[in-house]
Nucleic acid binder design. Structure first.
Lengths: 345, 345
DNA sequence: TTGTAGGCGTTATCAA
DNA sequence: TTGATAACGCCTACAA
């Protein structure tokens, strides 16, 4: 106990047993006599003993840390996702550590390295925009990894993701059914695979509805509130140039809705808006935001399950799980009368 | 390299040097010959060597992990706070690990224990609602700890917090100056110290303005969007019973604003609303939300600085730092004409 | 039911 | 400039 840190030896000394016995108590072994166990436990709490998991890991090899590397926590959706992962870890005897990359690839590398150095048993990662396989692949070569939401092609890692294409298709089809012919897709940048998938669903729905696909209606923007705002001038000048928009996600959609109001247009009446993710905020806008629900918690839970199972089995062949989305209809897209599309799924 | 994990011994073998030399290279010591260093580095990357920080910590005693224990990441304000802490750690050679408690004290205990077991060098903690000194004090007895935003009286730990009382006072005074006489305080529960402070500022401003303090105007609610919503019926029935509200935070304020609109009232025109925190969302509501800016990143940065300094010096006597707030005036409180109060600060 | 004796990967001390 | 050796705190045989 030289340095202030109490060890099992100190505990043993105090309880009058050897360190091995203390270790057995720690492990909850049935071999220890009840009286001994009690004495040891008492000594532990009196000394303020703290288990040194690092030492145990060093000896035993396996760590209980599960790393969550998330691209951007300022998007509420990813917070939901992280919460889903966390809760699932609880039940699985893993300790989840969360790291935020703020959509910064070099920060992401640092964070991953750090988790590896700390002996993480596995990683759930939602790659930052701008990540490259070249830099990530060698790092992740020896650790079970599950990608969530975003996918880096060429990476040998599992994936849990929503059915982006189908979700976007459902949403766009709804807008078309409501009579819109000039429907925009707003948000994200062309390099994002998730966006590609969502745009593909959007295009498919337009074609199925017999509408023309106008590339000018497919707009890029940062995936932030301001990104959504910025799109509005291009959307409504001249007025009626577009009359509806499917947004890359809810954050963009909310920014867009607010800018519409400021431009004198009523979302849901003069202009239809649909978002993607169905974050909690979508219920608390005026009008309520229609959104393609991705069920972030479920996605997170699924990813965590998969990862824990891969860790347990030692087999982490890449698998892919696509989770269904649901169109949650609120007022922002107008035409409440049409029955929900959920039934069609 | 038995178990797949490459050690410095393996690296040394490959490079034809001893593990001590490898260790020196790792530490960037100027003692090693350049040619040796090069050979060792090459061996490391060829073998895919990963530094085992657990082992180093076990040997050396000091860890590089800094734990952030946050009450609730689904409040965007605390995400900002966490980002501030993270960024500051970067510059200080600490690795920040984030854990979310979802406002759940027992989860919080687990998380803290886990961080201690992993040898965290220090903790930044924003205690969950319902935390007790009795359970926290023994845990934190031997580790530098800085509380942020929230304070547990009786805990021997530093605190970085905004000037809640003064912030609330400024906001309330503004509402009074705009001619409101029935001003409510909405959100939070009575047991929260932060709320106590904010309510105290609110009461003080009312008295300074010669207004009566009506306990019925001080309302509790969960600090969520729905919490804000729920307050509205009590606020506007009968119409004009209250004409303005200072909210516990922006999340409550945004929920409240939306419910106002649904009740047929225009925030900023028929009813004045001020929030607290100035989260990013406050700029993206319609109308823009007037808010007492707490500058979450700065608060986080300050807390991280303080903690790192306490770790470095080994002296962690409790200190308190109160950071000033600013009233950011947008449209939700009406009366744009009055000049901003910032100048008075 | 409990004690003894390594060894996990690293760093620090001391020799060479 | 490099190598040998002893800890760090824990767990796991194996012995008692």
């Amino acid at each position: 106990m030289r340095d202030g840190r109490v060890t099992i030896i100190d505990v043993g000394l105090k309880a009058g047993v050897s360190k091995s016995t203390v270790s057995l108590v720690l492990a909850g072994s049935p071999l220890v006599a009840d009286s001994t166990r009690a004495r040891v436990s008492k000594a532990m709490s009196e000394l303020g003993y703290v288990y040194n998991r690092g030492a145990a890991t060093l000896r035993g090899g396996k760590a209980d840390v599960l790393g969550m590397v998330i691209n951007d926590l300022s998007n509420p959706f990813f917070v939901e996702l992280a919460i889903g992962i966390e809760q699932t870890c609880q039940n699985g005897a893993f300790v989840p550590f969360l790291a935020n990359c703020s959509e910064n690839p070099s920060r992401q590398l640092q964070v991953i390295r750090s988790m590896l150095e700390h002996g993480a048993a596995g990683l759930v990662i939602s790659p930052s925009v701008g990540s490259t396989v070249a830099e990530l692949k060698p790092l992740l070569a020896d650790i079970p990894t599950v990608q969530v939401m975003r996918r880096l092609p060429g990476l040998r890692a599992s994936l849990v993701s929503p059915e982006n294409r189908e979700g976007a298709r459902k949403a766009t089809r709804r807008l078309a059914q409501l009579g819109h012919t000039r429907i925009a897709f707003v948000g994200g940048t062309a390099s994002m695979i998730v966006r590609e998938e969502r745009v593909a669903g959007y295009v498919q729905a337009l074609e199925e509805s017999g509408l023309k696909v106008d590339p000018k209606l497919i707009m890029e923007s940062p995936i932030t509130y301001s990104g959504g705002r910025q799109a509005v001038p291009r959307l409504v000048r001249p007025r009626g140039w577009a009359t509806a928009a499917l947004c890359f996600n809810d954050v963009v959609a909310i920014g867009l809705m607010n800018a519409l109001v400021e431009a004198g247009l009523r979302p849901g009446a003069d202009f239809a808006v649909i978002g993607f993710d169905d974050i909690i905020e979508a219920q608390h806008t005026t009008p309520g935001l229609t959104s393609v629900a991705v069920h972030g918690r479920d996605v997170g839970a699924r990813a965590a399950q998969m990862l824990m199972q891969q860790i347990a089995s030692g087999d982490w062949t890449a698998q892919t799980v696509l989770l269904p989305t649901t169109l949650v209809v609120r007022e922002s897209c107008g035409g409440k009368s049409i029955e929900s599309e959920d039934s069609e799924t």
